[in-house]
Every structure is written in structure tokens, then in C-alpha cells.
Simulated assay, not measured.
Amino acid sequence: MSVEDDMTATDAAAAAADTRGAARIGSEPITIAVIFGITVLLILSSRFISPAFGGWSQTETILFLSSFLVFCSFGQGLVILVRGLDLSIASMITLGGVLTTTWLAGSNDGIWYVIPAILAVSAAIGSISGIGVTVLRIPPFIMTLAMGIIVYSLCLGYTQGTPRGYPAPALADLMRAHVLGVPAPVLLLAVFVAIAVVLQSWTTFGRRLYAVGNNPVAAHVSGLSTRRLTIGAYAISAMCAGFTGIALAAYANGATLRMGDDYLLPSIAAVVVGGSSILGGKGNFLGTVGGAILLTTLGTILAALGIEQGWKTIIEGAVILVALIILRESVYEAIRVWMGRTSAG
């Protein structure tokens, strides 16, 4: 081998090593960074709309409003992770709000067992959806849609068309409280996100969900109970939706039969924009959080501009499509190659 050939081989090996080093930067960190970066730019640029925008006060408001979407998107993300879809979220949010106002009836008495009872009822309903998907082999789309219709009909009959009552004063006070100058709901959001990230990414349960989503057959052959894991994901999704209903009822000081409608499609959009694969097996909850905050920020700005609902929906859909195009795996691969060439140069 000539000296020139030896140098070429050495350079190729070095370039390959650099490319492998760049590849260590996975798509998930890039997705999260891009989403939060876009969100920050949107918030800062909103100052051109109004001098009152673009500051910490608006940021607090956005975080507060996005918390409801983050709560329900976590469960939706787990279901999507195992190759499912939960279309019952809107009805489960309504159920959580209706039970909060009717069971508590404006009193703090029993709040410590009523709230867990509502979450337990929600989880039980979610488990039924999971059983239908895994045992009866009903497609997730059909099963959760049917459960959503059933739950909504039960809420309609239970309230006779008009939800009555009020949440416990303690819940309403919590939504208005501040701790060290920070709204209590924002701190609640931070705690929820921390717990959710640990559950999805750092626990055995979370890692097994990824395994089921990547390859259900291989997961089953390796000894994992794919049915139980899938049912667990649906149960958590319904419980998160019920929790969202509780929070919304406390915030609005009441419940309505359509209170969950605005969160069904955005919960799916937040998960997908956050980098999760709709085919399952891939996703990071921090990306979902970024997606939820991004969608909330966009909605807030469009509302401030006074854009009609039809155009608002079109713009939101366009932004989601653009985000999905930008955050494709091919784009990440191009970035990795560019980083490898830069390092080699």
C-alpha cells in the first residue's frame, strides 16, 4: 500500500469516527431543541403585536393554559407509543369535570377521597378500552371512539343535559394561588412533567412500552406481557384525561358537556409534533411538552390577532405540517452528515 493510499484510509477512518460521534446526537434532542426554540421565537415575536406580549407575564399565561393539554397529551403519547390511539380523551375530560362538580358540589368535604375515586373510575374505563383492543382485537380507533360515545352519553344522561354544581373551593383556590410569585398551576405542571418523564423514560414500565411499540411480537416472545402493558397505557391515558377534567373544572369553576372537545386533536398533534412516531415505538415526553406549549403559543397569538376561527384552524394545521416536514428523520440525517463533514474539515 502506498503512502497516499494509507493517508486516504486514515482520513476515511477519521471521518467515519466523526460521523459516528455526530450520530450519537439522536433525533430526539434535536427535536426538543427545535420545538422549544420555535416557541421562544414565537413568544418574542409576539411583542410586535402588543407591547404587553413577549414578557414573563405572557409566558406564565401560556404555560398555565398549556398545562391542560400537557396533562392529557401524556396519556395519549403512551397509547401512541404502543401503536394505539385514544379518541375517548374528550369524553373522559368531560367525565372528570362532571364528576368533580357533582360529587364535590362546591364543598371541600371528601375531597381527599373523591379525587382519587374520579381517577380510579377514569382508569377503569381506560382499562376497558385496553381490553377491547388487546383481547377482543378491536381496532384502537373504533374501540376508543365507541367508549368515548358511551361515556359522553352517560354524562349526558347523568346531568340531564346540564351539568350542575361547583368544584371544591380548595381546587379553585389552587388554580389562583401563587407560590414565590409563580402560579401554582405552573408548579403543578413542572411536577407533573418530572414524574411523567421519569415514568416514560426511566422506569421498567416505560422501557417495556417502547419494546411493545417497536415490535410487539418480539416483546411477547421475550416474555413481556404485551396485553397488560397495553391495557396499562390506555388506563393511564384515561386517568390523565380525567385529571385534566378536574383541573379544567377547577379553573372554570364549573363543567360543560363539551369541555373536552378542544383537546382531542391537539393532544394527538402535540405528541406527533413532539417527535413521536404515530406508528409507535418512538417518542419523548419532553418533545410532547414542547409540542403542547408550541400549539398553545400559536393559538394565543392568533387569538390576539383577532383571526377568525376558520383561518385560525388553517394556520394551525399548516404550522403542524411544516413542523412535521422540518422534523423528519431525513433532515436529522442531513444534519448528522453536515456535522461529520464539519468535524472532519
Rank of each mutant, 00 (worst) to 15 (best):
E28C: 09
A334K: 09
L145E: 02
A33R: 06
L41W: 14
T61K: 00
D262N: 12
A238C: 11
M259Q: 00
I131V: 08
V212S: 05
A170K: 08
L99W: 01
H220E: 11
V193T: 15
V193N: 12
A33F: 09
P266V: 07
E4D: 09
S225T: 06
W202H: 13
S88L: 04
A124E: 06
A146Q: 07
A120V: 08
T159R: 09
A52M: 10
G181E: 02
Q160H: 12
S343M: 14
Y332I: 01
L265C: 11
V289W: 02
F205L: 01
L324T: 04
G223A: 02
A235I: 05
D18T: 06
G280I: 15
S27R: 15
L95E: 06
L265M: 15
V3Q: 07
L65R: 12
A23H: 01
T102A: 15
F53W: 09
Q200T: 10
G55P: 08
G290I: 08
L78V: 13
G148D: 06
I43P: 00
A219Q: 00
D262Y: 14
S27L: 13
T94W: 07
A334C: 14
M239G: 13
D18L: 14
A235M: 11
R164H: 07
P169W: 06
A196D: 06
L188H: 02
G126M: 10
L189W: 04
G306T: 03
E308Q: 07
F205D: 00
I111F: 01
A17H: 08
T313H: 07
V217M: 02
S330L: 02
L229E: 04
P169I: 14
V319K: 01
L41S: 15
T31H: 14
G148P: 08
I49T: 06
I268P: 11
T313E: 15
A194H: 11
P216A: 12
G260V: 03
T244N: 04
L189G: 03
I301G: 05
F74K: 08
R47L: 07
